[in-house]
Design a protein around this nucleic acid. Sequence first.
DNA 1: TTGAAAGCGCTAACAT
DNA 2: ATGTTAGCGCTTTCAA
Lengths: 338, 338
Amino acid sequence: MSRERTKPATVTDVARLAGVSPGTVSKALNGRGQLAAATRERVMSAARELGFNPNLVARGLVSGRTYLVGVLTTDTIGRFTIPLLTGAEDVLGPGQMSMLLCESRGDPIREQHYIRSLLNRRVDGVIVTGRNSDVRPSLGAEVPIPVIYALVQSDDPRDTSVLHDDREGAAVAVRHLVETGRRRIAHVTGPGRHAAVKRRLLGVEDALRAEGVSLIDEPMYGEWSEAWGREAAFRLDRGGKEFDGVFCASDQIARGLVDGLREAGRQVPEEVGVVGMDNWDAMAEAARPPLTTVDLNLSGLGRTAAELLVAMINGRPIETGHHLVPSSLVKRRSTELS
Amino acid sequence: MSRERTKPATVTDVARLAGVSPGTVSKALNGRGQLAAATRERVMSAARELGFNPNLVARGLVSGRTYLVGVLTTDTIGRFTIPLLTGAEDVLGPGQMSMLLCESRGDPIREQHYIRSLLNRRVDGVIVTGRNSDVRPSLGAEVPIPVIYALVQSDDPRDTSVLHDDREGAAVAVRHLVETGRRRIAHVTGPGRHAAVKRRLLGVEDALRAEGVSLIDEPMYGEWSEAWGREAAFRLDRGGKEFDGVFCASDQIARGLVDGLREAGRQVPEEVGVVGMDNWDAMAEAARPPLTTVDLNLSGLGRTAAELLVAMINGRPIETGHHLVPSSLVKRRSTELS
DNA sequence: TTGAAAGCGCTAACAT
DNA sequence: ATGTTAGCGCTTTCAA
């Protein structure tokens, strides 16, 4: 019979065994106060013997800190949220902080419930996230604890939002096309109303302007789907305009596009270079040829968000407004110089 | 200035305002004990006026219940874990229970840390999950609170594991091929060492035996990738054996397979019916033709796991061992009768 | 250097 | 029907 199986040991138990008072145990275990080395050692070994572990609920009650952070997703946990969570955990984990998951599924009522629940649990802070990077209403003064918006941005400039850099990411993609010798470039993108689509277009224009060229045509707006990518390939093929490079605003579009181009008899990358965006491995690697693409670095985004949150929780001042996390280019065969 | 902005109100504050004792406030708010309707009302309105919300940390300390469940994933949160979490949340949310996320990433040290942390936080129970459904070591007596294994199975029969039904799912797929007139069926699957691969093969054999036919050849083992699906299509095409139906053990394989068959000039579904598995929408819907596939019902799996956990937490007896969650067939064009 | 005592916010048993 | 008291497990003054 191991003794861990019964009710967990408390500071009082440890105190009794070590022949000291509970207060002394607390000091010894937390390295606070002035204690004789011998006493400290005696307490430590008593704690070890009893398999003592502090009750974090009790500690939270007295300290007012729970080492919990709420993660509130505006919609559902998705493909984009996962690396973000992983990145956040990399930062929070070593500090013994845990994440409380709340999927509001786009329902404001549910969101309110979750916020109340998180507040009642006395979480130390909240990360608000979601699928797309459009602006969302601030949680505002209803939530009097540190809040960081990640991947989504708050409409209140006094809040802090961490965002991927759509504009620079798109610029990097286009610059790469230019560097691999492409001059007649098309842009196939998602629905025009998305903020990300607008920002990516700005990046495309930045890069082209710097190179002294321009898009061969208007940006081609459509769905975030492979089907749209194939359709776009068809239109480009039949469009009568020469083109030797295409930047697609997602890997799904890019994959559809390379399929369409191949079927139209256009060689990628020999005749046309293609760059996607997202670095969604299942898409980018399975495409033929595999896609050069922009990695939005969402795990870095999660890390940054968590770091900022921890800073706020610890009372360190941080910059409000937008923090942009740099993207990077992942080179694969779809732009390779042969 | 709204009064919510200051330190949150406590039962004592409410008691003072209502002119009663803290104990009475507790009873009024929780509907316990015998109270005069008038008093109850007075307390309620005082609570409302102060914007009172109970401190769940304090409540947790006294009641010993935290309404928290830990979710321990062996690897990283992935495509399979997401619907599972969503399903679990559907069950836990209404009961005011929250999920604490712990990604151990397959690192036993990290897992130990998380387990300690969850225990120290006094979570009410734990859901253990992971990417694949192979057997994993039980958390055992180290974790003296309710534990449910979901998607992964514990090696200890005294534990409770909730699993998708690979065998029946595969059987459903093959029956559907037979029902759409296919008799010469091939099976393209993943690495032979995976438990899921073995179980799926059993299901294939179940279904074929019932129909009095057998596989045209040995199961074709390979990677869980589109590239393997394409390769398998090539081999089938050149293999010299007639075939008119293929069951692939994943949608990625199935997608590669239909691509390969199309390029080999074999019509899907007219000449060959193809069924995949997973119902991964980005794959199944983008394939040409879109894939008929088996939905493993992972959100149902998450729900079941959460329901069982809640039952255990509430002291209701549940069956240990394996609980199988039924799969279902999602019909798309790859098996359509023309 | 250590112990005693109070208190975090809530609930439950026992008085009244 | 309501109030009083004690206590959950820990930390933190303050006294000794």
